[in-house]
Design a protein around this nucleic acid. Structure first.
Lengths: 348, 348
DNA sequence: ACAATCAATGCGAACGTTCGCACGAACGTT
DNA sequence: AACGTTCGTGCGAACGTTCGCATTGATTGT
């Protein structure tokens, strides 16, 4: 009669008639046994439903098979539209390698934030970290590099620092938008941009400039409107653009995010323009709402699933010391989703 | 010269001149020492930067101080708008009690899903679970109850099952919406609802019916439109409503979620109506987009932060066996956010 | 035919903590 | 003066696994 006590290696070994260390080695693939011995052990494992106790394994093996992740909380003004997908992607990738994800709270106080990372690592709750929302001079990067704590980052930081990193090629994304607008016949294309301090913003803006120059066009300085990236700014900047004299007035507007594009949509409609035919408007990020506004918004979708998968794969490589060459930043191309706001005949 | 080896209890104890078990007991608050002894120990702890190794502690104490959470991934059709806030809330509550959150992937295959919960618990990776997206006959509920695995749920299940649970009072939410519309003078109020199989939907719909009856109104059967909760359904249902003869045609529409309300908004505008004055439209969930559509959408906001805090608090109570009476379901009242879609003079 | 190799398994130790009880000293009580 | 009590601390054991080396018997090469 099986008692309800937990099934340990010793119990399995007893029933299979081997030493418990042998069972451990078999399950960890560290040894090859006689087929019949192996069969006896596996039978006992299955019959008893043995599962190795995680803290015991972790104590001895000095690894937690757990990865830490923390992210900057969203505000009502900038909801985090990708968190769900990114997490699910990382979770599935981690699970496939028998790893798990430990989430922990973000702290706006930098000292406390760094302390949290260090404690999690030193108490061996996690083997390494995934960082997101990385910016220039991100204190976490230097902190972790100095202590040789394994991590990967979603987003680039200072170019002089070398660490494994994945980022979306925002430059390429805006090139795609502008080229799409050029192909539709637009020549006077404006852009709703972020302040000059934004790394992500400058990267995307660069794509606009490159695409315009490649087409032999020199953007009017007024076509580059900078603001704080909200709906309200998109609306007022668009009104300014529409008030320009006809020969300087843009026929298309590329926004660096969907929120500003939503504002542009509203301003254009209030001016009596029919978005899609009278004027083209495109966003960036492909937020859920992009499909639901009227007309549906052309936007640039980041390959979030792929990013999650690669982040985990890279971190596991770091943990296995599988890196031969110094780690570089991997750039992934985004995808242009064409909808009716730039192309009236688009299906959506 | 301190080597870079990890600092253990023994090292701290040696420097403080006590046995290492005494240090452990002090740090765990299991003993009171002479003030001077305690001071010596604390000084050594601080100086060496000692932190207890989590797997060792966990192995011996038979608890992981970790809670498991998994959620149904969003689809493009129904983005998960609350995940970020809910997670942050739970993380902060857990951290305050020195707990952590382990996230794991959702499996659509039920056997695999249940197996995942069981394995996490049996391998002692987690002490208990938080469930969300709970529905009628949720297999997880029975599975966990049978095995006496601690958990709390966000959302109600079968009334005959007793377990700790938190839910938003959707019935109350819709009463608030309808009462607000009644106060604005509306009498013919329609509702965009979910299929009859939806527990959440029926709960919210009940609030509509109660509020109407309380006002002495009997809803026309055509005013209750049921569909799959998407923008497209909201749009077509609203068109049907607007095509009713004037004396049956509703002057206000309450949708059970924001997506349907967005569809209603579009349909009304395409009919040339001015939303807010000619017709009132309200949603539910207060998704981020509710603020950005035109006109801004009146909606019902769930107290997500509070829910996260309470979920963790309840689960910790379960883990501490602090429950005296059988656990009941806690209902939290949502908040009505009035915007221009029902109230032209609203600030937003 | 004899040392050298190899395959299959066993064995003691260690990982760093917490648990449970024991022990001596100081204290108050009768 | 003898006796329980309480306080402060120590000690051995245990939690369940993995690590590293040892051991045994069979196989190979010369």
């Amino acid at each position: 009669m099986p008692s309800s006590r937990r099934v340990t290696l010793k119990e399995v070994a007893r029933q299979a008639g081997v030493s418990y260390q042998t069972v451990s080695k078999l399950l960890n693939g560290q040894v090859r046994l006689l087929p019949e011995t192996e069969a006896r052990i596996r039978e006992a494992v299955d019959r008893l439903g043995y599962r190795p106790l995680y803290p015991a394994r972790s104590l001895r093996s000095r690894t937690s098979r757990t990865l830490g992740y923390s992210w900057t909380p969203a505000t009502p003004d900038s909801p985090n539209q990708i968190l769900d997908l990114l997490l699910q992607s990382m979770l599935s990738a981690a699970e496939a390698s028998d790893y798990h994800l430990l989430c922990f709270a973000h702290h706006f106080d930098v000292r406390r934030e760094l302390e949290t990372y260090l404690t999690l690592y030193e108490t061996r709750r996690v083997d390494g970290f995934i960082l997101s929302s990385v910016e220039y001079d991100d204190p976490r990067i230097l902190f972790l590099l100095e202590r040789e704590i394994p991590f990967v980052a979603f987003g680039r930081s200072n170019p002089e620092l070398q660490f494994p990193c994945i980022d979306v090629d925002g430059c390429e994304g805006l090139r795609m938008v502008v080229n799409h607008l050029l192909e539709s016949g637009h020549r006077r294309i404006a852009v709703l941009a972020w302040p000059e301090t934004s790394r992500v913003g400058n990267n995307r803006l660069e794509g606009y400039l490159q695409a315009m120059h490649s087409a032999g066009l020199e953007p009017d300085s007024l076509w580059i409107q900078r603001g704080e990236g909200q709906v309200a700014f998109g609306e007022e900047a668009t009104r300014r653009l529409l008030n320009l004299p006809p020969e300087r007035r843009p026929t298309a507007i590329a926004a660096l995010n969907d929120l500003m594009a939503f504002g542009a949509l509203r301003a254009a409609q209030q001016s009596g323009l029919h978005v899609g035919s009278d004027i083209a408007i495109a966003g960036f990020d492909d937020t859920p709402a992009a499909r639901y506004v009227h007309p549906p918004l052309t936007s640039v979708r980041q390959p979030i699933w792929q990013i999650g998968q690669q982040l985990i794969a890279m971190l596991l490589e770091v943990l296995n010391h599988a890196y031969t060459s110094p780690p570089e930043c991997v750039l992934l191309a985004p995808e242009l989703i064409v909808r009716a706001s730039t192309s009236p005949e688009a299906s959506e």
